[in-house]
């Protein structure tokens, strides 16, 4: 009888711990409705940054139109692509010092209401409903700073004043964007 009680107590403790963990997770998760998300984004756009750096960013997927036959049915038929492939024209923004390329992307996407998804810390899977592998098996998003492709994750690349960031979609492991890094093995 004593044994039964002990196991019951342990089961109750485990249940309480599980519930507590779920509650902590929910409390630490920031929930917003669609309207709240939009108004928070527009408020953020109005905030001015003092002692910031001025950088520019553009987002472009014009390469998918050169490989349109490889594009996934979902993206083709959803009507989400813009005809010229320009998701965001070159924009100059002032952000705080010490921010990374990823922070910049996240900020402009939130302000301009562009959906993004990232994996792990800062691997960008998709921007504006266009995802990796949507245009062939070696397609995905890459970024350029001042004309060169850095070899860092975008969350590790810290911006400096005057940097020009370009986010471009490749259908060919960067080769169609002029990146020769993956040609070395050939």
């Amino acid at each position: 009888m004593g044994k039964l009680k002990k196991s019951r107590i342990i089961a109750c403790l485990i249940a309480i711990l599980a519930v507590a963990a779920i509650v902590v997770l929910i409390i630490n998760t920031d929930f917003e409705t669609v309207d709240e998300h939009a108004s928070n984004a527009s408020n953020e756009a109005l905030e001015s940054v003092t002692d910031g750096i001025s950088v520019s960013i553009l987002i472009n997927y014009s390469t998918v139109f050169d490989n349109y036959e490889n594009l996934s049915d979902g993206v083709k038929n959803a009507g989400v692509l813009r005809d010229d492939g320009v998701l965001l024209d070159k924009t100059t923004v002032v952000i705080e010092k010490g921010k990374s390329v990823y922070d910049l992307l996240e900020y402009v996407c939130r302000v301009n209401d562009i959906a993004i998804e990232y994996n792990g810390s800062t691997y960008v899977q998709g921007i504006g409903y266009l995802y990796e592998y949507d245009c062939g098996p070696i397609s995905g998003w890459m970024y350029k700073v001042n004309g060169i492709f850095p070899r860092d994750a975008c969350g590790d690349y810290i911006l400096e004043d005057g940097d020009e960031v370009e986010w471009r979609y490749t259908c060919d492991l960067g080769r169609d964007l002029g990146d020769q890094y993956y040609n070395m093995g050939d």
Partner: peptide, 11 residues
Amino acid sequence: NGVTPLFYMNS
């Protein structure tokens, strides 16, 4: 992914 957001969780 998807064009119809229901709500946002950690943005």
